[in-house]
C-alpha cells in the first residue's frame, strides 16, 4: 500500500462496506458531519461527534484515575450482629480462590478490572497522536484492533448491576453499605458508556490509513 496509489485502490478508500451485511456505500463528502447507517440492517457506519477525540482522551484519563481509586478503597461493607466485613473490588474478583474455581477468579478480575483498563490504555495509545496531529504510532492498528476485540468482554457495567442485585439478596441477612470505591466504580461505568458512544470507529480507522494525511476534522 505504500507505493503509488493506483486509481483503483484510491477509489476503494472512498467505499464503505457494512461489516454486518456487506452492502456497499460511497463516502460522498469527506467532511462527514452526519451520522451514516446501513439502509438495510441499520448498522452504524459513521458517527462523527464534534471534538470527539479530545473528549475521549479526557474521559480515558478520568477513568484511569478512578479505576486506581476504586481498587484501593473498600467497595462494599457488611454488618450483622456486631460483626462487620468490608470487601474491595479485588476481593470480589478473587472470591473464587479454591481449586478449579480459581479460573473464575482470573476471568472475573479480567472482565471487571483488567480489560476495561487495557481498553483505556489502548485507546489513549491510538488516539493521542491522531488528536495532536502527529503521525499514528507504528502499532496503532494492532492496538485498536485488540481494543475492539476486547469490547464485548469488558463487563464493568454488568458488575455494577450485579452489586445492586447482591444488595437486595442479602438484605434480610445483613446490612450492606457502599464504600467510596463503589461510587468511583459507578462513575467509571458511566464514563465508559459515554466514551463508547463517542467513538466513531470508522473515523479512527480512516485516520490510521497508511498513506493518508490526518484529515479527520471531527477527531480533533
Amino acid at each position: 500500500m505504500s507505493s503509488a496509489s493506483s486509481p483503483l485502490t484510491s477509489d476503494l478508500t472512498a467505499l464503505i462496506a457494512c461489516p454486518q451485511c456487506d452492502a456497499i456505500y460511497r463516502v460522498r463528502d469527506l467532511d462527514h458531519t452526519v451520522e451514516a447507517r446501513c439502509t438495510r440492517c441499520h448498522t452504524e457506519l459513521i458517527a462523527p461527534r464534534l471534538k470527539a477525540g479530545m473528549v475521549i482522551i479526557m474521559l480515558s484519563l478520568t477513568t484511569l484515575i478512578l479505576v486506581f481509586g476504586a481498587l484501593w478503597f473498600p467497595f462494599l461493607e457488611i454488618t450483622r450482629a456486631g460483626l462487620s466485613n468490608s470487601a474491595t473490588l479485588i476481593d470480589a474478583a478473587l472470591a473464587f480462590s479454591s481449586g478449579p474455581l480459581m479460573f473464575l477468579s482470573l476471568a472475573v478480575l479480567a472482565m471487571i478490572v483488567l480489560i476495561p483498563l487495557a481498553r483505556v490504555l489502548l485507546t489513549l495509545y491510538v488516539l493521542v497522536p491522531v488528536v495532536f496531529d502527529r503521525p499514528p504510532r507504528s502499532r496503532a492498528a494492532q492496538a485498536f484492533r485488540l481494543s475492539e476485540d476486547l469490547r464485548p468482554w469488558s463487563m464493568a457495567e454488568i458488575f455494577a448491576i450485579g452489586c445492586a442485585v447482591s444488595l437486595v439478596k442479602v438484605a434480610d441477612l445483613a446490612r450492606i453499605e457502599f464504600g467510596p470505591a463503589f461510587w468511583m466504580f459507578s462513575a467509571v461505568v458511566i464514563i465508559i458508556l459515554i466514551q463508547d458512544s463517542y467513538l466513531c470507529r470508522w473515523s479512527v480507522w480512516a485516520s490510521l490509513e497508511p498513506e493518508n494525511e490526518p484529515k479527520n476534522e471531527q477527531e480533533r
Binding site: 457488611i78 470487601a87 454488568i158 450485579g162
Partner: peptide, 25 residues
C-alpha cells in the same frame, strides 16, 4: 444481550467475598 448473563456469576463473586462473618453468616 449475551454478556448480561454474567450478572449471576458476579453476584456470587460479590456475595462470597463480602459475606464472610465467621459463624454469624
Amino acid at each position: 444481550i449475551g454478556r448480561w448473563s454474567m450478572i449471576d456469576v458476579f453476584v456470587v463473586a460479590i456475595l462470597s467475598s463480602l459475606v464472610q462473618l465467621n459463624v454469624a453468616a
